[in-house]
Computed example of a mutant assay.
Amino acid sequence: MFTGIVEELGTVAEVVDQGDAIRLTVAADTVLEGTVLGDSISVNGCCLTVSDLGDGRWSADLMQETLDKTSLRGVAPGDRVNLERAVTVDKRLGGHIVQGHVDGVGEIVSRSPSEHWDVVEISLPSHLGRYLVDKGSITVDGVSLTVVEARDASFTVSLIPETLARTTLGRRQVGDLVNLEADVIAKHVEKLLGAHLPAAPAALVDDEEE
């Protein structure tokens, strides 16, 4: 589990194509402190398992499922990535509960810079819309953010100077892809309430499918 508070910007050092998988090696500093083989590190919001480490680098193996469902399929040497170690029980939960399980990939639709912050609009996969509310939480590339406005097919966030300086979101441009994770509490609430809510009338379901 993570908090969505990025600890450092790492640099992709190597990407080795293994056919139906890749081995990703990242150069880092802070996240290597106290890290051992088998630990979890979030890379742009995707929870990865440390399979090798040493000399200021660590590696993880990304299976085809991860490549299909996240923006990590497009990483290349030299790319900067957001890194966060798994949270410990004695750490403050500065963001919100983040699993590191990417729910979908969005696209930067627009950026509106101002003197002190940037307002960024991001497209939203249709199946995630029901989990977003104004002033609710969402994770974008591993960064815990507050939704400014939840729209039908997108949402907006305001990026403060700290976020712009310390994460990849300060560099993302229109058209770039980002990993999204909806608030897990919203997903659990939906499932728990679903068993107690009346089912939609059959005729209505048929009309919607048509």
Rank of each mutant, 00 (worst) to 15 (best):
I5H: 08
V6F: 04
T11C: 07
Q18N: 14
Q18W: 10
I22A: 05
T25Q: 09
T25I: 08
A27K: 08
A28Y: 01
D29R: 11
V31R: 01
V36I: 11
V43N: 02
L48K: 00
L48A: 04
T49L: 06
T49P: 02
S51G: 13
D52S: 14
D52C: 11
L53A: 09
D55Q: 13
R57Q: 12
L62K: 01
L62T: 09
E65C: 07
L67E: 03
S71G: 07
R73T: 15
V75N: 02
P77C: 11
R80V: 09
E84R: 09
E84F: 07
A86Q: 06
A86C: 10
V87G: 05
D90I: 12
I97F: 15
H101F: 08
D103L: 06
E107M: 06
E107N: 09
I108T: 05
V109Y: 04
S114T: 15
E115P: 04
H116Q: 15
W117L: 13
S123N: 08
S123F: 00
L124D: 00
P125V: 06
L128N: 09
Y131S: 03
K135C: 08
G136S: 08
T139I: 06
V140K: 03
D141A: 10
G142K: 05
A150S: 14
A150N: 05
R151G: 00
D152V: 11
F155Q: 02
V157H: 00
L159Y: 02
I160N: 03
T163W: 03
T163P: 06
R166D: 14
T168M: 10
T168C: 11
L169Y: 04
R171A: 14
G175L: 08
D176Y: 10
N179Y: 04
L180N: 03
E181D: 05
D183F: 00
K187Q: 08
V189W: 00
E190C: 01
H196S: 14
L197W: 11
A199T: 12
A200M: 15
A200C: 05
P201W: 05
A202I: 15
D207W: 13
E208W: 14
